[in-house]
């Protein structure tokens, strides 16, 4: 079953992905990720001593702080803190959970690593782009990780039966259901799955499989970008 997509892709085709590391000179590590028109900038700072709530984590572990912001000009819909605040909070907690499975916090005890991401343009799958940018930035900052985390969304445009990989904004809005998978490709472990809408077991499996294939593409792009940032 093939439905023509608004940008002429096939159902299982991703948008072109662009990754560049080392974009913020002040930060310990940084990355910029583009999924066609979805653009995310991410900076990692630290590790630094203390930080809010450092007493609440175990003494032999560090803390990962994630703050995702939507630029006021990122979306074409309602803008400002009232409209975007909830989305930002939800984004931050999802990205945090996706990364905390990979970041080895025991390597920086009693300190905090801050991850700040800004969505410059939200044109669908901004969550995936943010997770990918954050894991590349952490990697560049020299934070020890079990694996790179890449993420991808599989969405149902016309119910769970017609799955689309990496939906753009219009497709996302029309989708009745979607699965965003944060996946550590080399380890073969998922660190976060967010499913919306109604799914039955089988179609959810298909959607996760589809998202995992997208993650593999993102993973390859991240590794390539990290490798090319090293002078030969």
């Amino acid at each position: 079953m093939t439905i023509p997509r608004e940008d002429g892709r096939s159902a299982e085709q991703m948008r072109p992905i662009f990754v560049k590391t080392g974009v913020i000179s002040q930060a310990a590590g940084s990355a910029y990720v583009e999924l066609d028109k979805t653009k995310v900038m991410c900076g990692v700072y630290g590790p630094r001593q203390g930080g809010p709530g450092i007493d609440k984590v175990e003494f032999d572990r560090g803390r990962l702080d994630v703050d995702v912001k939507l630029a006021t000009f990122a979306t074409s819909g309602p803008r400002g803190k009232v409209a975007q605040g909830d989305a930002e909070r939800e984004f931050s907690s999802i990205v945090h959970r996706a990364l905390s499975g990979a970041v080895m916090t025991e390597t920086f005890p009693k300190t905090t690593v801050d991850v700040f991401a800004t969505v410059l343009e939200a044109n669908g799958s901004e969550l995936c782009a943010t997770i990918a940018a954050a894991s590349a930035a952490l990697c560049e900052a020299g934070v020890a990780m079990r694996d790179l985390v890449s993420a991808c969304t599989g969405g149902g445009a016309d119910g769970p039966n017609a799955l689309l990989l990496d939906p753009a904004r219009g497709e996302e809005a029309a989708a009745e259901a979607g699965v965003t998978l944060a996946y550590m490709c080399r380890l073969g472990e998922a660190s976060q799955v967010v499913a919306t809408g109604t799914w039955d077991g089988e179609s959810l499996d298909d959607a996760v499989q589809l998202a995992a294939s997208g993650c593999a593409r993102v993973d390859a792009a991240l590794r390539e970008a990290l490798r090319s940032s090293v002078p030969a």
């Binding site: 990979a102 990697c139 020890a144 990780m145 079990r146 694996d147 790179l148 550590m184 490709c185 080399r186 380890l187 991240l222 590794r223 990290l226 490798r227 090293v230």
Partner: peptide, 8 residues
């Protein structure tokens, strides 16, 4: 001569 995280 180069590794990235998770290479086993």
């Amino acid at each position: 001569s180069f590794v990235s995280p998770g290479e086993s």
